[in-house]
């Protein structure tokens, strides 16, 4: 069976620096797949290549066996791969509901002529329903009229995911979703991600919070200095000597 997402020999060079070097991994449908590694390992760069934010220097990104490498971000999104951003990248000046509505853009494409003539009311209603469901899913229903910029940090992170979820993607890419969350919020968010996954959304996430990663992922890919290091289940990764060395430093790093 073709995996949902496959990365082949993916390479990104910034001038002389090779940020990601011939990376290979597969994400199976219905899994929660983690991408970990020490700071500067090239996780976010990999994300940016998969989502179309960067064009890879070499290698391919395959979605259901189709080459999507180098497509612009909105084209990748239209094929069902939606990402969130590190930090709280939101439409801070718009209401929470409007943020979620923009997430429904792909399903309910705005039509100029119909909008002027008022023939799109059913699409607008459906989009509104979809946006509200999304907000409810992430526990944001009671703040829908607030400005996104005024929300608490935890809420902002949840909203970022609600926007992505509103488009009902096949694959959702989460870039450090737990940053700045307290343990309670992290636990709640993990529960939501499991529910997302149970509904059929495949998740690929980059994260530093090891407890969350180990508790959540079916499969983990570990990178270090741009290179593939190890792959396996959380238990395998936890005990993998190369991974331990990359994080804690082996004998040659100690000095």
């Amino acid at each position: 069976m073709t995996p949902l997402l496959e990365v082949q020999n993916l390479t990104m060079r910034f001038g002389g620096l090779t940020a990601v070097d011939r990376l290979n991994f597969k994400v199976e449908k219905g899994n929660i797949h983690g991408l970990i590694g020490p700071n500067g390992a090239g996780k976010t760069t990999t994300f940016n290549m998969v989502s179309g934010f960067y064009k890879p220097s070499q290698g391919r990104v395959l979605l259901n066996g189709q080459d999507i490498s180098g497509l612009p971000m909105h084209e990748v999104a239209n094929r069902g791969v939606v990402r969130t951003f590190q930090h709280s990248t939101l439409f801070g000046e718009l209401s929470v509901l409007d943020n979620a509505l923009i997430g429904t853009h792909m399903t309910f494409r705005p039509n100029l002529l119909k909008a002027i003539l008022g023939l799109d009311s059913s699409a607008r209603r459906d989009a509104l329903d979809r946006a509200r469901t999304s907000l409810e899913f992430f526990g944001l229903a009671d703040v829908e009229h607030e400005m996104a910029g005024d929300l608490s940090h935890g809420h902002q992170r949840a909203l970022g995911m609600a926007v992505a979820y509103a488009s009902r993607p096949d694959l959702i890419l989460l870039d450090e979703p737990f940053t700045g969350m307290n343990p309670e919020e992290t636990r709640r968010m993990m529960g939501l991600m499991r529910r997302l996954c149970a509904e059929g959304t495949t998740i690929l996430l980059v994260e530093h919070d090891m407890q969350a990663i180990m508790g959540l992922c079916d499969n983990i890919t570990c990178m270090s200095f741009g290179k593939f290091l190890a792959e396996g289940s959380p238990a395998e990764i936890r005990n993998h000597p190369d991974v331990i060395e990359a994080y804690l430093g082996g004998a040659r790093h100690v000095a």
Binding site: H74, F85, F91, I102, H105
Partner: peptide, 13 residues
């Protein structure tokens, strides 16, 4: 307000 996020939501900027 946030062209990157809009694009990630599938908007052709």
């Amino acid at each position: 307000w946030q062209d990157k996020l809009a694009q990630a939501s599938g908007v052709n900027l």
